[in-house]
Simulated scan of single mutants.
Amino acid sequence: MNPNLQQPDVSTNSNKPLDKKRKKRVKEWKLFGEGMVYLFPALLILGVFLFYPMVKTLYYSFFITNPRGDTVVFVGLEHYIELFKSSNFQNSLIQTLKFVLYTVPTGVIIALFLAVIANEKVKGIEFFRVIFSSTLGVSVAAGASIWLFMFHPSIGVFNNIVQTLGLEAIPWLTSRQWALISVSVTTIWMGIGFNFIILLGGLQNISQDLYESALIDGAGYFARLFKITIPMLSPTLFFVVTVTLINSFQSFGQIHILTGGGPNEATNIIVYSIYKEAFEFSRFGTASAQAIVLFFFILVFTVLQFKVGEKKVHYQ
């Protein structure tokens, strides 16, 4: 054997895979660090205005507080137990579910109807698109104030129409029978602008080739509507329904201006009940418990919607 022949450096070769893994890991951490730098402003804002208040709300729900909001006595789950025993909270829960039932389907159907009309290629349709979407530029306070005058028992537009027809004036905002319906009508009107714009955008993204093929096959208007338009619009509809559902659970401003939760707790939905408990009665612990319950209700409804509704969504 030639003594001058050198043996291969096994240790050097074996270190190469380790060096590659180490470099790959360093690169991944570097990319992660760069990503966190870009995400830091958003995470900071979310942490201050979303995550911290949620944790603080959960913390308060386990305590009795004084009027200044300082925790005094730890009560554990007592607030939650008392809530579900309370007839007032049960009434708020029922009124909230009614309010969501009144506003979500009706608001989405009306917005869809207007979007389908506005999507037609008719001369001057741009004017109606502006009109249909105009409620998006109206604040909750301004919109509720407009409807407050319209629902006025003596000078309101609706009662003037009713009395012109020879009927008795309707106590729109002072009757337990009509108050929740009146607030729901206001809420539907205020949400139409946003829903209309989103649905119109979805309609304009549907390929015209599908309609042309359907026309060649002899499909009528309603056949094209239910066989092409609705299925192809289902992702947009799914988004609109989800957002409208969440917004309905969180409605506050119009209720505060129109009815103040009355009459006789008829419009005292959970969000308004939270407001009264915290800022009128200074019971921050009970209000926080209600806020956590509302959060879980919204979470459950949203998860169910994704589990059930998304199965019927037709993605291109």
Results as ranks from 00 to 15, higher is better:
191 G>S: 10
244 T>P: 02
177 Q>H: 12
222 F>I: 10
90 Q>P: 00
27 K>W: 05
23 K>W: 09
210 L>T: 04
164 T>A: 09
287 A>E: 03
280 E>L: 12
283 R>Q: 13
130 V>H: 01
25 R>E: 11
186 T>W: 03
18 L>K: 03
52 Y>H: 05
113 F>H: 01
98 K>L: 12
133 S>V: 05
123 K>W: 08
121 K>R: 07
191 G>T: 11
183 V>C: 05
98 K>Q: 13
299 L>M: 14
109 I>A: 10
163 Q>C: 10
83 L>F: 06
290 Q>Y: 09
33 G>V: 14
71 T>H: 04
4 N>F: 08
300 V>M: 01
292 I>Q: 08
194 F>Y: 11
292 I>Y: 05
230 I>S: 00
258 L>G: 02
78 E>K: 15
107 G>F: 00
246 I>Y: 06
202 G>I: 02
129 R>S: 03
55 V>G: 09
84 F>E: 01
264 N>E: 11
43 L>D: 02
314 H>K: 13
69 G>Q: 11
192 I>C: 06
176 R>M: 10
201 G>W: 05
315 Y>L: 08
38 Y>N: 07
250 Q>K: 13
272 Y>W: 10
47 G>L: 13
252 F>Y: 13
249 F>M: 07
276 K>H: 09
187 T>Q: 03
310 E>P: 00
254 Q>A: 12
42 A>C: 14
36 M>I: 15
74 F>Q: 15
27 K>S: 08
